[in-house]
Design a protein around this nucleic acid. Structure first.
Length: 353
RNA sequence: GGCGCGGUGGCAGAGUGGUUAUGCAGCGGACUGCAACUCCGUGUACGCCGGUUCGAUUCCGACCCGCGCCU
């Protein structure tokens, strides 16, 4: 394939499309249509679909759909593993670079807003999680109480203490973890990223992108520091009640498709537990409780559906304040194509093959 | 028809003569390495009418509705 970028050496970063939206809004449908309409390749942005063996409950695209439109970053982890926003950023950048190098457009589709944010805005240079240290911190908390840990944080890093509620153990633990590993206040490390002026270093070292000559020639986007021109879309029905309806319907379908058998199989492995991110996923956690005999079937369904609604609400909270998104109230590929054309995406990108 | 018990916010469920029960759901929000996570905020609701009282969701009476028993 002739390098489209080489033919049209504008000093503009190559395109990338973000397709975001709450659960059950029809993102997969729209992505499938877009793959038909233009030369793009899908990268999943979903913290649950990364897990192998978790297909029904995560609403993973079907085998036929995956055949027609391969999704990257799906089925990349065992349910016993955990995966972080930093992992995602690294992997997504590598996949984007590869797709772009082939003259195609990366289409990032999903609902894990934290991953989108990490990709778009980057992350500070922080150490990754240390399970040993976390266990230690947890023990201390059991002895002295979480409040005391928060007091401790307030003494050494008042800014972080102010931003993290004392009840938010997970984030409190993370802050203390980082401080103990680096010996520096976490708020200082957060600030370090903001100081780095965006746009000046188009290629992030270690991202994998520097291996692709097509890309290194472009300026990074001024806003994000990403070496892509990002077009962002948010898909969600206008009416919340409509989304609730879809969620309810879809949960019922999942049950018919054997969702409980899927969870039964996970449970039967014997090495998974409810502290793991995989088992904490919406629906799975409630199914786990049901299969353990802690709740009855109707409670399971009720709580599973409610948890999904709550997920959708949190996703919408992210999206509402998201800058520069175009909202779509239904999975209409034409609307996306039109926007891209108007935005000056080269027409060679608009025709498939 | 008679007797008994009960009617509390969308649901569940305490309670009191005058100061917010609470839980769940819903809604709003935060969120830089577990993010489909984690966390924060948010509702004077007491069946109806009358009476007692400075004051009634709480006491008294009638009525309506539900459940149970009796004829």
């Amino acid at each position: 394939m002739v390098g489209l970028h080489a033919q049209k050496p504008e000093h503009r970063a190559p395109p990338a499309i973000f397709l975001m939206g709450p659960t059950a809004s029809g993102k997969t449908d729209l992505a499938m249509s877009l793959v038909q309409a233009m030369p793009c390749e899908i990268i999943s942005v979903d913290s649950a679909m990364i897990y192998r063996g978790m297909d029904i409950g995560t609403a993973k695209p079907s085998a036929e759909e995956l055949q027609a439109a391969p999704h990257r970053l799906i089925d990349i982890c065992d349910p016993a593993e955990s995966y972080s926003a930093a992992d995602f950023r690294r992997d997504a950048l590598a996949e984007m670079a590869e797709i772009t190098a082939r003259g195609r457009i990366p289409l990032l589709v999903g609902g894990t807003m934290m991953y989108f944010k990490a990709l778009l805005n980057g992350l500070s240079d922080l150490p990754s999680a240390d399970s040993g240290l976390r266990a230690e911190i947890e023990q201390e908390a059991e002895r002295h109480g979480w409040q005391q840990l928060h007091d401790e944080l307030a003494a050494t890093d008042p800014e972080a203490a102010q931003r993290i509620h004392p009840n938010n153990r997970q984030r409190l633990m993370r802050a203390i973890e980082v401080i103990r590993i680096t010996g520096r206040p976490i708020s200082e490390l957060w600030a370090a990223k903001l100081a780095e002026s965006p746009g000046t270093s188009p290629v992030r070292r270690g991202s994998g992108i520097e291996n692709y000559p097509y890309i290194t020639r472009w300026q990074a986007d001024e806003q994000t520091g990403l070496p892509y021109t990002v077009y962002q879309f948010a898909l969600a029905p206008m009416e919340r009640s409509q989304l609730h309806q879809r969620i309810q319907l879809r949960f019922g379908k999942m049950l018919q498709q054997g969702f409980l058998d899927e969870v039964r199989a996970l449970k039967a492995r014997g090495d998974l537990n409810t502290d793991m991110p995989s088992v904490r996923c919406v629906g799975y956690r409630q199914a786990w409780d049901f299969l353990s005999g802690d709740i009855d079937h109707s409670t399971f369904v009720e709580r599973g559906v409610a948890a999904t609604r709550q997920l959708a609400k949190r996703q919408l909270t992210w999206l509402r304040k998201w800058p520069e998104v175009q909202w779509l109230d239904r999975p209409d590929p034409q609307a996306v194509v039109e926007t891209l054309k108007k935005s000056g995406v080269p027409s060679t990108f608009m025709m498939n093959n």
